[in-house]
Design a protein around this nucleic acid. Structure first.
Lengths: 212, 212
DNA sequence: CGAAAATTTTACCATTTGGTAAATACACGA
DNA sequence: TCGTGTATTTACCAAATGGTAAAATTTTCG
């Protein structure tokens, strides 16, 4: 018997699978699925191409493994949004967690972004089954806060979109951001301050009714 | 002499170049540069592959043509931001223009996003030469408004990032948005209202100083 | 019309790329 | 240390892909 899949994975198996996934994350995040080659991944991982195919069924298998592994991590900050916490704190902390994540895991952010950008060909089902229920749940939480008058009457769905957009922007559009911003140590803090100001301004209860 | 490049382009030339670029926009926006094939573009354009290569030097040439043509369009809404207009109106109108653009030109938005996501390998120089000067200029305009106390003391650079991020999100992450939002006619208006509320809340002069 | 120029098609080619078969080297428990 | 299953390499292959040469067709214009 060979077949890597079944039984308990050996020490070498775990190490090499980890090495391959890490290398693939680098390559896929930079070039996208179709732009990445197995040879690139192999080189990055320090293994031969056939050796990589000993651990994974193929290029697609690696990609899918990466994506489903990523889903958990990606949802985590939203999972932590506590219905029983202070609304302002909860939302602003969520923003901060997402921003930290974009900063600490830019490769993952770009992998995700690339997948969505191309129409989520591999992650579509995951979005439906994992992301949507969580999204709906947390939108309901925010709606509850609004009904209780604890935050302004905003649009929960679009609020979350704006949080995702603004935070992930720093990872996904890093090539643009780095051209436009002088390299300063303070940039991270400025981004954090800005987003805090942006969303706390929106949350303040005395928001006016939308015109137009 | 053949060589498409020089002299005045014929009727057929203009038509076919337009057809090819439009087809290529569809394909590149969906699959990215490396994910797109000349055969796909040819089929989409209703032309043969060699015929496409009669009008463009190669795949890269098509891509570059598309990107540089796009740059103008993309910068346009920011160009229109008027230093002598009312700050609130100017910024909120800019948000609206960007949102409209994401909605009306999703392919262009995704092409741009894909290029940046992969490190701007083709557009890097354009970012420096075209985008950065404009960005700096408009940041200065916003700074001026802040100094005059016309808007809150916000961070001009990151404000613009947030505007880009939130508006383009609807085009670039459409695959995700469409999973999470029920298909309603009102979605566009809700997004518009949300962003208006978001940024007008930030602009209001009585914003508090950032803590932390 | 008729010839020259522009356009399009047909038939290729070289390289890249995902993937496989089989032989070889290695690890590890008995 | 030996033997067995695990891990890795070597040597390939078929399909896809970007691109070209040259013949054939169509358009343009005097």
């Amino acid at each position: 018997m060979s077949e890597v899949v079944s039984k308990k994975p050996s020490r070498i198996q775990r190490r090499n699978r980890r090495v391959i996934l890490d290398a693939a994350l680098n390559i896929f995040a930079q070039h996208g699925f179709r732009g990445a080659t197995l040879d690139q991944i192999a080189t990055e991982a320090g293994l031969s191409k056939p050796n990589i195919l000993y651990y994974f069924q193929g290029k697609e298998d690696i990609h899918v493994s990466l994506l489903s592994q990523l889903m958990e991590t990606w949802l985590d900050p939203l999972v932590e949004l506590d219905p029983y916490g202070d609304p302002q704190t909860e939302i602003l902390d969520y923003v901060q967690r997402k921003l930290d994540m974009a900063r600490d895991l830019p490769r993952e952010s770009r992998l995700f972004a690339g997948e969505i950008l191309q129409g989520a060909p591999y992650m579509g089902p995951h979005l439906e089954s994992d992301l949507k229920p969580l999204f709906d749940e947390k939108c309901a939480v925010i709606s509850g806060w609004i009904d209780q008058g604890k935050i302004a009457a905003l649009d929960p769905q679009h609020l979350i979109f704006s949080i995702w957009a603004t935070t992930q922007h720093y990872a996904d559009f890093e090539a643009q951001v780095s051209v436009l911003l002088e390299k300063e140590a303070a940039n991270r803090q400025r981004a954090s301050n800005h987003l805090r100001a942006l969303f706390s301004a929106l949350l303040r209860p005395q928001s006016p009714p939308p015109s137009s």
